[in-house]
């Protein structure tokens, strides 16, 4: 890894694009301030995009952070709007996946995004004890990326058939292909069986 970095020339600093800069401009967030006061050591990085803070959190601290954001009187992120996986292989290499949590405070009208990095085959603590609605989202992230969630009550595939043997939203999974290459739909003995058309 080090050799590669030494050989690549450092690119000249790019001129800042005003549109891009506006997109990345920090925005005030009460929830983030509260989180910083209470659990500042769990925050690894903060970025902004389109006015929403994106907070990178240590993997083992995610449940703690989620619970704080939900229960703290100042942040009140009662709604887990979305939880999904992202295959980061084309953007940064390792660790391979990000789990992204989009939280909304229905009465504070604020939004915040949490991110947790996880390597292939790694486990992320499940946030189902904090929001029940995380159940199916985590099942989907498992189904599509193979990210495992520790402590999930029922971690099964949700959209793909149970006998499917790959994780289709990974970047190395092809867009087109045959079902039988992935262990479902047709068993070998079915190939020779007469169908009703014959």
């Amino acid at each position: 890894m080090d050799d590669v970095d030494n050989k690549t020339p450092i690119p000249p600093p790019k001129k800042a694009d005003p549109v891009e800069e506006a997109l990345r401009a920090p925005a005030p967030s009460r929830a983030l301030d509260r989180l910083g006061e209470a659990l500042g050591d769990a925050i690894e990085d903060v970025a902004y995009h389109c006015g929403v803070p994106i907070v990178r959190v240590g993997r083992d601290r995610i449940v703690e952070v989620a619970r704080f954001l939900k229960e703290d009187s100042g942040s009140r992120m009662l709604l887990l709007a979305d939880l999904c996986g992202v295959d980061m292989i084309g953007l940064r290499g390792a660790p391979r996946f990000d789990v992204v949590y989009h939280l909304t405070g229905p009465d504070t009208r604020e939004r915040i995004t949490l991110k947790v990095a996880v390597e292939e085959g790694g486990e992320v603590p499940s946030v189902t004890p904090v929001w029940r609605g995380a159940n199916w989202h985590e099942r989907e992230a498992f189904d599509m990326f193979g990210i495992r969630f520790a402590g999930h009550p029922d971690l099964r595939r949700i959209l793909m058939p149970e006998e499917f043997d790959a994780h289709p939203l990974r970047k190395d999974f092809p867009l087109e292909g045959r079902e039988k290459d992935h262990g479902f739909w047709r068993r070998p003995e079915d190939e020779t069986r007469n169908t009703y058309r014959d």
Binding site: D17, V19, E20, L23, R24, H49, C50, V52, I54, A81, D82, C84, V86, G90, L91, V100, H102, T104, R111, T113
Partner: peptide, 23 residues
């Protein structure tokens, strides 16, 4: 430009969200 956005609308059935990551 590189970045990401989670945008929501009020659809007839609830909160419709789109999360886009741009490289």
């Amino acid at each position: 430009p590189k970045g990401e956005v989670y945008h929501v609308n009020e659809g007839p059935r609830g909160e419709l969200g789109v999360y886009l990551v741009s490289d």
